[in-house]
């Protein structure tokens, strides 16, 4: 009885932890209050919001532009907003940034010869792993299925069967 109660408490406690986990994570580090940006259309606002999340701040390299407090990130946000207000498309802004800071500013690097390993490496590893696993399992199964009994095993089997017959009669 007592053990059940402890178990229930544990389960409740853990589920509470998991349920509140994501909420806590959300209320953790928030984006710094960035400059107020006013756009003419909702599409402009949307592409701005998309860009500042997909472009990396080169000063604090593990943050995107919207998260970063670095003065450069603020300048780049302003520059992006100016470009968008002037009617630039999302890919034009990305081109502008890549021309200056390289592919490094992209959180989703382009697929080219230097990034094939990055993009396809994990998939290739998984295929290799699955193939290896399949091969090992197949080999094990065929070994078990085809291995004939040795002479001693045959004799032992016969003995056992003989014993059985004697016992039952």
């Amino acid at each position: 009885m007592n053990r059940h109660r402890i178990l229930a408490t544990c389960v409740l406690g853990w589920s509470a932890l998991f349920l509140t986990g994501p909420v806590l994570a959300q209320s953790g580090p928030t984006a710094p209050p960035s400059e107020p940006m006013v756009f003419a259309t909702e599409e402009q606002e949307a592409s701005y919001q998309k860009l500042v999340r997909e472009l990396r701040c080169t000063v604090c390299q593990n943050q995107n532009l919207i998260e970063s407090n670095a003065p450069l990130a603020s300048d780049l946000r302003r520059q992006i907003s100016v470009m968008i207000k002037d009617g630039a498309q999302t890919d034009e802004v990305v081109e502008y940034m890549v021309a200056r800071y390289g592919d490094f500013v992209l959180f989703r690097p382009p697929k080219n010869a230097t990034t094939y390993l990055l993009w396809y490496g994990p998939g290739a590893l998984m295929v290799i792993g699955l193939a290896l696993l399949g091969w090992i399992l197949w080999r094990r199964r065929s070994q078990v299925a085809t291995a004939p009994l040795s002479v001693e095993e045959q004799q032992r089997l016969r003995r056992l069967l003989d014993d059985d017959e004697k016992g039952s009669s």
Binding site: T58, V59, P71, L72, D75, L76, Q79, R100, Y101, G102
Partner: peptide, 13 residues
């Protein structure tokens, strides 16, 4: 002063 030329030159540090 504004850092705009710096951006053109890809300056970050």
């Amino acid at each position: 002063e504004s850092g705009m030329v710096g951006i053109d030159w890809g300056v970050y540090a």
